[in-house]
Amino acid sequence: MVQPQRRARNPLSTAVAAVLLLVGVIGAFWVPIYARSAPKLGDFPFFYWFQLIWMPVVMVLCYVAYLLMRTSPAAADNANGAPATDGQGAK
């Protein structure tokens, strides 16, 4: 049986998730931030290492946003209009 772990989505966590995702997008969209060669990391101009490092940063941002936005199976069953304790849906 699925334990009802209600995680009603509150507006705050949705807002935080939205901000995190927005930061991720803007970091790549705002080209003047990284269209420069200094400072270098090793032999890599800033333009290259910034984008290569921004990628894992965005992964983390997306994952945190996922944790904030995920629906527990019970909450999802609720949303379907079924009783939250109905474990049949797990099959």
Binding site: A18, L22, V58, L61, C62
Partner: peptide, 23 residues
């Protein structure tokens, strides 16, 4: 040169955007 790197910037942006509406 650098212009071709837009592909990287593109694939950085795509997942935060899609995470919003794909579910």
């Amino acid at each position: 040169g650098a212009a071709g790197f837009y592909a990287l910037s593109y694939t950085i942006m795509v997942f935060p955007i899609v995470l919003v509406f794909a579910p």
